[in-house]
Design a protein around this nucleic acid. Structure first.
Lengths: 226, 226
DNA sequence: GTATTATTAGAGTATATACTCTAGTGAGTC
DNA sequence: GACTCACTAGAGTATATACTCTAATAATAC
């Protein structure tokens, strides 16, 4: 693997693990056992590394959220979208953590992220529309649909922060993809009132699969997360 | 005013304006025209300043979210809760921005914030319960009510981050309380399906008051925010 | 007044951080 | 063998950051 790609990979790994704020370019170089000079041969600065990682993230989510227009939408599609988006969020989880700072220090990123958000919102709204066409949810006026889409987006992008901050015993590193996907339970909660009678049972059953475990997770975590 | 209080006030002001990450103890001292030594006479370190500011924030929100148990809830109560919570969010807006980092660097804060979140969630849930008792929304099972409360919390705490990141032309400083309160529109969107026929019209009218302006706000901002 | 205590200034320190500069090395080309 | 060129090492730099230390001044108690 090329040094350049190794830098991107290690950076992402370290950022996700410790948070961008706690990872310096020297840390990245040390982690790869290369010199800082070498790192700066491949990237002009830290922002450039982050920007390239964002482009990957963007590409991934755009790929996941591609809506097929030649056929009706199924419940499986919806499940796929939810699972995928949370997968993406997990793989690039450092990003939303320090989002505001990152956008403040890179105007390119700010602009691109804005467009990205708008594309995501449009996709979510389109998914709702197609779910209605498929008779899974009741059709809604566009106004309501976009407000709902925005709420879905807010829940999705804030779910991880909630997990990491609301559970005292957990360190940041101490978070599993499974827990993250309990966010799906929250998203489906938003849909409940709009489900058609024909699909209500099936969606509720799907939602049940993601229900957070009831017991206090602290003990479990103690064993799971060293 | 005591130097100690001035430090807290200036810190909050600078944190809100520039973000905690961009404000050093030296900046705070310089802003007050006092020496760093003086600042460190009053506070052991930066974390202690942040912690005390959090305690204020916590106290304020706890005060706002006190639910009177001796009478029924009105629509005005609900409006007050929403307005107040967003006021609090505005006054201490730096806090949620760097939340994860702050909690990672101060265990007291982590524990306290966790308890704070849980109290807020309980209050939101209790508000829903009392809104149902008052015939404003349909009563719901506890399960659903707590999932809904959590969604409300996620929307509220993430609304500002959304505003600051989704609008490219806006600098962080460039955000008004009015815009922030459009978050109320989003929260009321969550309630729509649960409104009783008796109150539906009134709540929808209330919601309308917070609807975000339709036009592209960039031009307006250019004039409003220097 | 004198003693004590609270407060303040301001220079200083140890460490970290993002990034630069110079001097290479090694693989391929002619 | 001479030359090129992508790549790398590693020491070094300017600046910033959180925080400390000492000495001095103001406020208060007796």
């Amino acid at each position: 693997m090329k040094t350049r790609d190794k830098i991107l990979l290690s950076s992402l790994e370290l950022f996700n693990e410790r948070g961008e704020r706690n990872v310096t370019t020297n840390h990245i170089a040390a982690h790869l056992a290369i010199s800082p000079g070498n790192l700066y041969y491949h990237f002009r600065n830290k922002s450039d590394i982050i920007y390239e990682i964002f482009l990957e993230y963007e590409k991934l989510v755009d790929f996941y959220l591609d809506i097929p227009e030649d056929r009706a939408m199924t419940l499986d599609d919806m499940t796929f979208y939810l699972e995928s988006v949370f997968d993406g969020l997990w793989s690039y989880r450092f990003f939303h953590r320090d989002l505001e700072y990152l956008l403040d220090s890179d105007q390119r990123l700010r602009q691109d992220y804005r467009d990205f958000t708008n594309r995501c919102l449009a996709s979510i709204s389109r998914i709702f529309e197609k779910l209605a066409e498929a008779g899974i949810i009741e059709p809604q006026e566009e106004d309501l649909r976009s407000a709902m889409s925005l709420n879905v987006w807010l829940v999705i992008t804030n779910w991880m922060a909630f997990l990491k901050t609301a559970h005292a015993a957990e360190e940041s590193a101490c978070l599993t993809l499974t827990e993250l996907k309990q966010g799906i339970y929250q998203v489906l909660t938003l849909e409940i009132p709009y489900l058609t009678p024909a699909y209500r049972e099936r969606v509720m059953a799907l939602r049940e699969k993601y229900r957070p475990a009831l017991h206090d997770r602290d003990d479990l975590n103690a064993t799971l997360c060293k």
